[in-house]
């Protein structure tokens, strides 16, 4: 005879606290952001530029040390329309999240697109960073509110297909 009131599950929350340090490459990137710059690193072997840099070229497995400043504008390589709410994101739904290949970089990175209706975002679209006021800058990605269209002509697919 089944006990209707039997305990069937228990809640066992886990909580851990960490003090992160970013490591050398990410630290330089974050300090660059605090100065309003996007700093990448170039692989000494294959010459690719990584933004944000992790200190290594994942293809060659060698340290990346050359610092390279890249532009705060670039090209949407791919994107998605987000229709589910998230605790960490305070935006009107739906919104667009995109991979953006900054001018001078070889890998795209993730950012939000605003100031553009979600159904008009497209691959190849040119976008630029919208920075917060300089007085609010710190060593964080949050210095960049989002990206918005520049109005430049779209980049043909052939020119960024190697960077998807």
């Amino acid at each position: 005879m089944a006990d209707e009131s039997a305990i069937q599950s228990i809640v066992t929350p886990v909580r851990m606290e960490y003090t992160f340090t970013p490591g050398a490459a990410s630290q330089r990137f974050l300090l660059g952001l605090a100065a309003g710059k996007l700093m990448g690193q170039r692989c000494p072997e294959c010459r690719k530029v990584y933004v944000p840099p992790r200190g290594a070229c994942p293809r060659c497995g060698v340290a990346t040390r050359d610092e390279v400043e890249v532009a705060d504008r670039g090209t949407v390589t791919t994107f998605c329309i987000v229709r589910v709410p998230s605790e960490n994101i305070d935006l009107e739904l739906p919104y667009t999240a995109a991979q953006i290949l900054l001018d001078g970089a070889d890998i795209p990175f993730f950012a939000l697109i605003q100031e553009c209706p979600w159904d008009q975002v497209r691959m190849g679209m040119r976008v630029e960073a919208v920075w917060r006021p300089e007085a609010e800058w710190g060593p964080t990605f949050e210095n960049i509110r989002h990206f918005r269209p520049t109005g430049e002509p779209d980049v043909p697919f052939e020119r960024f297909q190697q960077h998807l």
Binding site: I7, S9, V11, P13, R15, E17, Y18
Partner: peptide
């Protein structure tokens, strides 16, 4: 640079 980071998992386990 340092950042405080909290990792939490609100697990409910069946028995």
């Amino acid at each position: 640079l340092t950042a405080q980071h909290v990792m939490e998992y609100p697990y409910r386990r069946s028995l």
